[in-house]
Design a protein around this nucleic acid. Structure first.
Lengths: 169, 169
DNA sequence: TAGCTGGCTTCAGTAAACATAAGTCAGCTA
DNA sequence: TAGCTGACTTATGTTTACTGAAGCCAGCTA
Protein backbone atom coordinates (compact mmCIF):
# COMPACT_ATOMS: atom_id res chain seq x y z
CA UNK A 1 0.00 0.00 0.00
CA UNK A 2 2.97 2.33 0.51
CA UNK A 3 5.96 3.16 -1.63
CA UNK A 4 9.16 4.95 -0.75
CA UNK A 5 7.64 8.04 -2.23
CA UNK A 6 5.31 8.26 0.70
CA UNK A 7 8.14 8.56 3.15
CA UNK A 8 8.87 11.88 1.48
CA UNK A 9 5.29 12.99 1.16
CA UNK A 10 6.11 16.57 2.12
CA UNK A 11 8.51 16.68 -0.78
CA UNK A 12 5.63 16.99 -3.20
CA UNK A 13 2.97 19.57 -3.59
CA UNK A 14 -0.68 18.87 -4.23
CA UNK A 15 -1.05 22.03 -6.27
CA UNK A 16 -1.53 19.86 -9.34
CA UNK A 17 -3.94 17.24 -7.99
CA UNK A 18 -6.58 15.75 -10.25
CA UNK A 19 -8.81 14.86 -7.31
CA UNK A 20 -8.73 18.40 -5.94
CA UNK A 21 -9.35 19.79 -9.42
CA UNK A 22 -12.30 17.46 -9.93
CA UNK A 23 -13.74 18.52 -6.60
CA UNK A 24 -13.58 22.17 -7.65
CA UNK A 25 -16.30 21.26 -10.13
CA UNK A 26 -18.37 18.58 -8.38
CA UNK A 27 -17.22 19.06 -4.79
CA UNK A 28 -20.66 19.72 -3.32
CA UNK A 29 -23.31 17.28 -2.30
CA UNK A 30 -25.85 18.96 -4.56
CA UNK A 31 -23.60 18.82 -7.64
CA UNK A 32 -22.96 15.10 -7.19
CA UNK A 33 -26.65 14.38 -6.67
CA UNK A 34 -27.50 16.40 -9.77
CA UNK A 35 -25.08 14.19 -11.69
CA UNK A 36 -26.81 11.16 -10.22
CA UNK A 37 -30.14 12.49 -11.45
CA UNK A 38 -28.72 13.23 -14.88
CA UNK A 39 -27.74 9.55 -15.16
CA UNK A 40 -31.20 8.57 -13.98
CA UNK A 41 -32.51 10.50 -16.97
CA UNK A 42 -33.70 13.71 -15.38
CA UNK A 43 -33.49 16.64 -17.80
CA UNK A 44 -35.72 19.44 -16.61
CA UNK A 45 -34.88 22.20 -14.18
CA UNK A 46 -37.78 21.69 -11.82
CA UNK A 47 -37.27 17.94 -11.75
CA UNK A 48 -33.63 18.32 -10.77
CA UNK A 49 -34.60 20.56 -7.87
CA UNK A 50 -37.43 18.32 -6.72
CA UNK A 51 -35.66 14.98 -7.10
CA UNK A 52 -32.35 16.07 -5.60
CA UNK A 53 -34.30 17.71 -2.79
CA UNK A 54 -32.80 21.18 -3.06
CA UNK A 55 -34.28 24.63 -3.64
CA UNK A 56 -34.48 26.23 -7.03
CA UNK A 57 -31.69 28.77 -6.43
CA UNK A 58 -29.31 25.97 -5.43
CA UNK A 59 -30.37 23.91 -8.44
CA UNK A 60 -29.87 26.93 -10.70
CA UNK A 61 -26.37 27.60 -9.34
CA UNK A 62 -25.20 23.97 -9.52
CA UNK A 63 -26.68 23.38 -13.00
CA UNK A 64 -24.99 26.54 -14.22
CA UNK A 65 -21.62 25.38 -12.84
CA UNK A 66 -21.96 21.89 -14.28
CA UNK A 67 -22.97 23.34 -17.64
CA UNK A 68 -20.09 25.81 -17.60
CA UNK A 69 -17.72 22.97 -16.72
CA UNK A 70 -19.03 20.98 -19.66
CA UNK A 71 -20.56 17.99 -17.86
CA UNK A 72 -24.07 19.03 -18.89
CA UNK A 73 -25.34 20.92 -21.88
CA UNK A 74 -28.54 22.87 -22.40
CA UNK A 75 -30.31 21.57 -25.45
CA UNK A 76 -33.52 22.98 -26.90
CA UNK A 77 -36.53 20.74 -27.21
CA UNK A 78 -40.14 21.28 -28.12
CA UNK A 79 -43.16 19.29 -27.12
CA UNK A 80 -46.24 19.47 -29.36
CA UNK A 81 -48.26 22.58 -28.56
CA UNK A 82 -45.51 23.92 -26.35
CA UNK A 83 -42.86 26.55 -26.91
CA UNK A 84 -39.18 25.71 -27.16
CA UNK A 85 -37.62 24.78 -23.84
CA UNK A 86 -34.18 23.71 -22.71
CA UNK A 87 -33.20 20.39 -21.21
CA UNK A 88 -29.99 19.62 -19.35
CA UNK A 89 -28.35 16.52 -20.71
CA UNK A 90 -25.07 14.75 -20.18
CA UNK A 91 -22.14 15.43 -22.48
CA UNK A 92 -19.36 12.90 -23.09
CA UNK A 93 -17.47 14.63 -20.31
CA UNK A 94 -20.43 14.14 -18.03
CA UNK A 95 -21.06 10.55 -19.09
CA UNK A 96 -17.46 9.73 -18.26
CA UNK A 97 -18.28 10.62 -14.66
CA UNK A 98 -20.33 7.42 -14.24
CA UNK A 99 -17.53 5.39 -12.61
CA UNK A 100 -17.38 7.91 -9.75
CA UNK A 101 -21.10 7.53 -9.07
CA UNK A 102 -20.95 3.75 -9.38
CA UNK A 103 -18.04 3.67 -6.92
CA UNK A 104 -19.88 5.93 -4.47
CA UNK A 105 -23.05 3.86 -4.72
CA UNK A 106 -21.10 0.66 -4.34
CA UNK A 107 -19.36 1.86 -1.18
CA UNK A 108 -22.70 2.97 0.24
CA UNK A 109 -24.33 -0.36 -0.63
CA UNK A 110 -21.52 -2.19 1.15
CA UNK A 111 -20.97 -0.02 4.20
CA UNK A 112 -24.01 2.13 4.76
CA UNK A 113 -26.75 -0.01 3.28
CA UNK A 114 -30.38 -0.11 4.10
CA UNK A 115 -31.73 -3.39 5.48
CA UNK A 116 -33.96 -3.72 2.45
CA UNK A 117 -31.05 -3.55 0.05
CA UNK A 118 -30.13 -0.88 -2.51
CA UNK A 119 -32.78 1.38 -4.01
CA UNK A 120 -31.37 1.19 -7.52
CA UNK A 121 -29.09 -1.13 -9.44
CA UNK A 122 -27.06 -0.31 -12.52
CA UNK A 123 -27.26 -3.18 -14.99
CA UNK A 124 -25.37 -4.18 -18.10
CA UNK A 125 -27.50 -3.66 -21.22
CA UNK A 126 -26.36 -6.87 -22.88
CA UNK A 127 -26.89 -9.33 -20.04
CA UNK A 128 -28.77 -7.52 -17.29
CA UNK A 129 -26.17 -8.33 -14.63
CA UNK A 130 -25.34 -5.70 -11.99
CA UNK A 131 -22.47 -3.35 -12.77
CA UNK A 132 -19.60 -2.63 -10.36
CA UNK A 133 -16.53 -0.46 -10.37
CA UNK A 134 -13.35 -2.51 -10.17
CA UNK A 135 -9.70 -1.58 -10.30
CA UNK A 136 -7.55 -2.87 -13.14
CA UNK A 137 -4.01 -2.11 -14.22
CA UNK A 138 -2.81 -1.35 -17.74
CA UNK A 139 -1.42 -4.86 -18.02
CA UNK A 140 -4.93 -6.19 -17.60
CA UNK A 141 -4.63 -7.57 -14.07
CA UNK A 142 -7.41 -7.13 -11.56
CA UNK A 143 -6.07 -5.05 -8.69
CA UNK A 144 -7.24 -6.02 -5.21
CA UNK A 145 -7.40 -3.53 -2.36
CA UNK A 146 -3.94 -3.29 -0.88
CA UNK A 147 -2.24 -4.38 -4.08
CA UNK A 148 -1.54 -0.87 -5.28
CA UNK A 149 0.84 1.92 -4.36
CA UNK A 150 1.10 5.61 -5.09
CA UNK A 151 3.86 6.75 -7.41
CA UNK A 152 5.10 10.07 -8.75
CA UNK A 153 3.56 11.22 -12.02
CA UNK A 154 5.05 13.57 -14.62
CA UNK A 155 3.14 16.54 -13.21
CA UNK A 156 4.42 16.15 -9.66
CA UNK A 157 5.75 19.33 -8.11
CA UNK A 158 8.48 18.82 -5.56
CA UNK A 159 8.85 21.44 -2.87
CA UNK A 160 11.10 20.33 -0.01
CA UNK A 161 12.21 17.73 2.51
CA UNK A 162 10.11 15.55 4.76
CA UNK A 163 9.92 13.63 7.99
CA UNK A 164 8.87 9.98 8.24
CA UNK A 165 5.28 8.89 8.92
CA UNK A 166 4.54 7.23 12.26
CA UNK A 167 4.09 3.51 12.56
CA UNK A 168 4.55 2.29 9.04
CA UNK A 169 2.41 -0.43 7.50
CA UNK B 1 -28.54 4.45 -21.02
CA UNK B 2 -32.20 4.62 -20.06
CA UNK B 3 -34.71 2.01 -19.00
CA UNK B 4 -38.47 2.15 -18.79
CA UNK B 5 -38.04 2.72 -15.10
CA UNK B 6 -36.72 6.18 -15.84
CA UNK B 7 -39.92 7.20 -17.53
CA UNK B 8 -41.51 6.84 -14.13
CA UNK B 9 -38.70 8.43 -12.17
CA UNK B 10 -41.08 10.33 -9.91
CA UNK B 11 -42.60 7.02 -8.89
CA UNK B 12 -39.57 6.25 -6.72
CA UNK B 13 -38.17 8.03 -3.76
CA UNK B 14 -34.50 8.68 -3.16
CA UNK B 15 -34.93 8.41 0.62
CA UNK B 16 -32.95 5.17 0.50
CA UNK B 17 -30.08 6.21 -1.79
CA UNK B 18 -26.60 4.80 -1.27
CA UNK B 19 -24.97 7.74 -2.99
CA UNK B 20 -26.76 10.26 -0.77
CA UNK B 21 -25.94 8.18 2.31
CA UNK B 22 -22.29 7.99 1.33
CA UNK B 23 -22.21 11.74 0.82
CA UNK B 24 -23.54 12.27 4.35
CA UNK B 25 -20.18 10.93 5.50
CA UNK B 26 -17.70 12.14 2.88
CA UNK B 27 -19.75 14.81 1.16
CA UNK B 28 -17.31 17.66 1.74
CA UNK B 29 -14.22 18.57 -0.18
CA UNK B 30 -12.10 18.39 2.96
CA UNK B 31 -13.31 14.90 3.92
CA UNK B 32 -12.51 13.53 0.46
CA UNK B 33 -9.07 15.14 0.45
CA UNK B 34 -8.38 13.70 3.91
CA UNK B 35 -9.22 10.27 2.51
CA UNK B 36 -6.81 10.97 -0.36
CA UNK B 37 -4.09 11.80 2.14
CA UNK B 38 -4.83 8.69 4.18
CA UNK B 39 -4.20 6.60 1.04
CA UNK B 40 -1.00 8.55 0.44
CA UNK B 41 0.11 7.37 3.86
CA UNK B 42 -0.49 10.44 6.00
CA UNK B 43 -1.26 9.50 9.60
CA UNK B 44 -0.66 12.50 11.84
CA UNK B 45 -3.08 15.27 12.68
CA UNK B 46 -0.84 18.18 11.73
CA UNK B 47 0.17 16.54 8.47
CA UNK B 48 -3.45 16.07 7.44
CA UNK B 49 -4.16 19.74 8.05
CA UNK B 50 -1.03 20.92 6.27
CA UNK B 51 -1.20 18.57 3.28
CA UNK B 52 -4.91 18.94 2.64
CA UNK B 53 -4.48 22.68 3.02
CA UNK B 54 -7.14 23.27 5.66
CA UNK B 55 -7.04 24.75 9.15
CA UNK B 56 -6.70 22.64 12.26
CA UNK B 57 -10.32 23.08 13.41
CA UNK B 58 -11.57 21.85 10.05
CA UNK B 59 -9.12 18.94 10.11
CA UNK B 60 -10.24 18.07 13.62
CA UNK B 61 -13.92 18.10 12.70
CA UNK B 62 -13.49 16.04 9.52
CA UNK B 63 -11.13 13.50 11.14
CA UNK B 64 -13.58 13.07 13.98
CA UNK B 65 -16.44 12.44 11.55
CA UNK B 66 -14.44 9.97 9.46
CA UNK B 67 -13.32 8.17 12.61
CA UNK B 68 -16.86 8.06 13.98
CA UNK B 69 -18.07 6.72 10.62
CA UNK B 70 -15.42 4.00 10.79
CA UNK B 71 -13.30 4.91 7.74
CA UNK B 72 -10.36 5.86 9.94
CA UNK B 73 -9.26 4.64 13.35
CA UNK B 74 -7.05 6.26 15.96
CA UNK B 75 -4.24 3.89 16.87
CA UNK B 76 -1.57 4.54 19.49
CA UNK B 77 2.06 4.57 18.47
CA UNK B 78 5.27 5.47 20.21
CA UNK B 79 8.50 6.69 18.71
CA UNK B 80 11.71 6.14 20.71
CA UNK B 81 12.15 8.86 23.32
CA UNK B 82 8.62 10.11 22.71
CA UNK B 83 5.38 9.64 24.58
CA UNK B 84 2.48 7.64 23.17
CA UNK B 85 0.64 9.42 20.39
CA UNK B 86 -2.25 8.56 18.13
CA UNK B 87 -2.20 8.10 14.39
CA UNK B 88 -5.20 8.05 12.05
CA UNK B 89 -5.11 5.03 9.79
CA UNK B 90 -7.45 3.47 7.29
CA UNK B 91 -9.79 0.68 8.35
CA UNK B 92 -11.13 -1.93 5.92
CA UNK B 93 -14.15 0.31 5.51
CA UNK B 94 -11.84 3.18 4.62
CA UNK B 95 -9.63 1.11 2.31
CA UNK B 96 -12.71 0.06 0.39
CA UNK B 97 -13.16 3.70 -0.53
CA UNK B 98 -10.18 3.59 -2.91
CA UNK B 99 -12.24 3.02 -6.08
CA UNK B 100 -14.03 6.32 -5.48
CA UNK B 101 -10.75 8.21 -5.28
CA UNK B 102 -9.32 6.38 -8.28
CA UNK B 103 -12.43 7.23 -10.27
CA UNK B 104 -12.26 10.90 -9.24
CA UNK B 105 -8.57 11.12 -10.08
CA UNK B 106 -9.12 9.39 -13.39
CA UNK B 107 -11.87 11.79 -14.40
CA UNK B 108 -9.68 14.72 -13.43
CA UNK B 109 -6.72 13.33 -15.37
CA UNK B 110 -8.89 12.95 -18.44
CA UNK B 111 -10.97 16.12 -18.35
CA UNK B 112 -9.24 18.66 -16.13
CA UNK B 113 -5.61 17.65 -16.51
CA UNK B 114 -2.54 19.75 -16.16
CA UNK B 115 -0.39 20.10 -19.29
CA UNK B 116 2.44 18.33 -17.50
CA UNK B 117 0.37 15.24 -16.78
CA UNK B 118 -0.92 13.86 -13.51
CA UNK B 119 0.88 14.57 -10.25
CA UNK B 120 0.54 11.04 -8.93
CA UNK B 121 -0.12 7.63 -10.41
CA UNK B 122 -1.54 4.60 -8.62
CA UNK B 123 0.35 1.49 -9.70
CA UNK B 124 -0.19 -2.23 -9.40
CA UNK B 125 2.23 -3.74 -6.87
CA UNK B 126 2.85 -6.86 -8.94
CA UNK B 127 3.64 -5.29 -12.30
CA UNK B 128 3.94 -1.55 -11.77
CA UNK B 129 1.33 -0.71 -14.40
CA UNK B 130 -1.05 2.20 -13.77
CA UNK B 131 -4.36 1.36 -12.09
CA UNK B 132 -7.74 2.50 -13.39
CA UNK B 133 -11.33 2.15 -12.29
CA UNK B 134 -13.38 0.24 -14.85
CA UNK B 135 -16.98 -0.94 -14.87
CA UNK B 136 -17.72 -4.64 -14.97
CA UNK B 137 -20.91 -6.63 -14.65
CA UNK B 138 -21.45 -9.70 -12.49
CA UNK B 139 -21.24 -11.89 -15.58
CA UNK B 140 -17.68 -10.68 -16.07
CA UNK B 141 -18.23 -8.43 -19.08
CA UNK B 142 -16.52 -5.08 -19.33
CA UNK B 143 -19.20 -2.41 -19.40
CA UNK B 144 -18.58 0.53 -21.72
CA UNK B 145 -20.08 3.95 -21.07
CA UNK B 146 -23.61 3.91 -22.42
CA UNK B 147 -23.93 0.15 -22.12
CA UNK B 148 -25.67 0.29 -18.76
CA UNK B 149 -29.09 1.23 -17.47
CA UNK B 150 -30.61 1.99 -14.10
CA UNK B 151 -32.99 -0.57 -12.64
CA UNK B 152 -35.09 -0.84 -9.49
CA UNK B 153 -33.41 -2.48 -6.51
CA UNK B 154 -35.05 -4.28 -3.58
CA UNK B 155 -34.86 -1.17 -1.38
CA UNK B 156 -36.67 1.08 -3.83
CA UNK B 157 -39.49 3.10 -2.31
CA UNK B 158 -42.31 3.93 -4.69
CA UNK B 159 -44.29 7.04 -4.02
CA UNK B 160 -46.47 8.12 -6.89
CA UNK B 161 -47.02 8.71 -10.61
CA UNK B 162 -44.80 10.55 -13.03
CA UNK B 163 -44.67 12.56 -16.22
CA UNK B 164 -42.36 11.72 -19.13
CA UNK B 165 -38.90 13.26 -19.54
CA UNK B 166 -38.36 15.63 -22.48
CA UNK B 167 -36.58 14.56 -25.61
CA UNK B 168 -35.63 11.02 -24.90
CA UNK B 169 -32.26 9.52 -25.84
C1' DT C 1 10.82 22.23 37.53
C1' DA C 2 10.72 24.74 33.57
C1' DG C 3 10.52 24.74 28.98
C1' DC C 4 9.38 22.54 24.49
C1' DT C 5 6.61 19.99 21.23
C1' DG C 6 2.81 17.45 19.13
C1' DG C 7 -1.81 17.23 19.13
C1' DC C 8 -5.36 18.98 19.66
C1' DT C 9 -9.59 22.53 21.40
C1' DT C 10 -11.70 27.04 21.84
C1' DC C 11 -12.95 31.48 20.19
C1' DA C 12 -14.43 34.77 16.92
C1' DG C 13 -15.32 35.83 12.44
C1' DT C 14 -16.00 34.90 7.24
C1' DA C 15 -17.54 32.58 3.13
C1' DA C 16 -20.14 29.26 0.76
C1' DA C 17 -24.05 26.55 0.28
C1' DC C 18 -28.16 26.17 1.28
C1' DA C 19 -33.57 27.43 2.44
C1' DT C 20 -38.20 29.89 1.59
C1' DA C 21 -40.84 33.04 -0.67
C1' DA C 22 -41.78 36.04 -4.15
C1' DG C 23 -41.09 38.05 -8.65
C1' DT C 24 -40.02 37.86 -13.76
C1' DC C 25 -40.50 36.51 -18.37
C1' DA C 26 -41.58 34.09 -22.71
C1' DG C 27 -44.84 32.19 -25.31
C1' DC C 28 -48.74 29.07 -25.77
C1' DT C 29 -53.98 28.66 -25.00
C1' DA C 30 -58.60 30.59 -24.29
C1' DT D 1 -55.43 40.29 -24.60
C1' DA D 2 -55.48 37.97 -20.48
C1' DG D 3 -54.24 34.28 -18.08
C1' DC D 4 -51.40 30.13 -17.39
C1' DT D 5 -47.20 27.44 -17.06
C1' DG D 6 -42.37 26.16 -17.00
C1' DA D 7 -38.14 27.92 -16.07
C1' DC D 8 -35.85 30.60 -13.95
C1' DT D 9 -34.01 34.92 -10.95
C1' DT D 10 -34.00 37.87 -6.94
C1' DA D 11 -34.27 38.87 -2.06
C1' DT D 12 -33.46 37.63 2.49
C1' DG D 13 -32.10 34.71 6.05
C1' DT D 14 -29.96 30.41 8.08
C1' DT D 15 -26.76 26.76 8.42
C1' DT D 16 -22.49 24.60 7.61
C1' DA D 17 -17.82 24.64 6.51
C1' DC D 18 -14.34 26.89 6.76
C1' DT D 19 -10.28 30.58 8.47
C1' DG D 20 -6.67 32.47 11.76
C1' DA D 21 -5.10 33.13 16.23
C1' DA D 22 -4.71 31.70 20.68
C1' DG D 23 -4.92 28.49 24.49
C1' DC D 24 -4.45 23.97 26.73
C1' DC D 25 -2.47 19.62 28.09
C1' DA D 26 0.65 15.53 28.40
C1' DG D 27 4.93 14.05 28.85
C1' DC D 28 9.68 14.06 27.36
C1' DT D 29 14.25 16.75 27.75
C1' DA D 30 17.41 20.03 30.06
Amino acid sequence: MMSDLLTERDAWSMANCSIARTLEIVGTRAALLIMREAFFGTRRFDDFAKRVGIGEPAASARLKELTAAGLLERVPYQEPGQRTRYAYQLTDKGRDFLPVLVALRQWGDTWAADEQGPAVVVRHKDCGAAVHAVLRCDDGHDVQLGDSFVDAGPGLIRVGPDRPEPGGE
